[in-house]
Simulated assay, not measured.
Amino acid sequence: MHPRASLLLLMLAASIRPTFAQKTGPETEAVKQTITSFFDGMRRGDSTLVRRTLAPGAVFHGIGGQPGQPPALQTESINGFLKAVGTPHPDVWDERVQFERVLIDANLASVWAPYEFYLGSKFSHCGYDSFQLVKLSEGWKIAHIIDTRRKEKCR
Rank of each mutant, 00 (worst) to 15 (best):
M1G: 08
H2Q: 09
H2N: 02
L7C: 06
L9R: 01
L10I: 06
L12K: 08
S15V: 03
S15P: 07
S15M: 06
S15D: 08
I16R: 03
P18D: 00
Q22M: 13
K23R: 12
G25Y: 02
P26C: 11
P26T: 10
P26M: 10
T28Y: 05
K32G: 12
G41A: 01
M42D: 00
M42C: 11
G45C: 07
G45T: 05
S47M: 01
S47Y: 01
T48C: 05
R51Q: 05
V59F: 02
P67V: 02
G68C: 00
Q69C: 03
I78N: 11
L82Y: 00
L82V: 09
T87M: 11
P88D: 04
V92Y: 05
W93T: 07
D94G: 01
E95L: 06
Q98I: 15
V102N: 07
I104D: 08
A106K: 15
W112R: 13
P114N: 15
P114G: 14
F117W: 06
Y118Q: 13
Y118E: 09
G120P: 03
G120V: 13
S121L: 13
F123P: 00
H125Q: 05
C126H: 14
D129Q: 00
Q132W: 13
L133P: 04
V134C: 14
L136S: 11
G139Y: 00
W140I: 05
W140H: 06
I145G: 09
I145Y: 10
R149I: 03
R149G: 09
E152A: 10
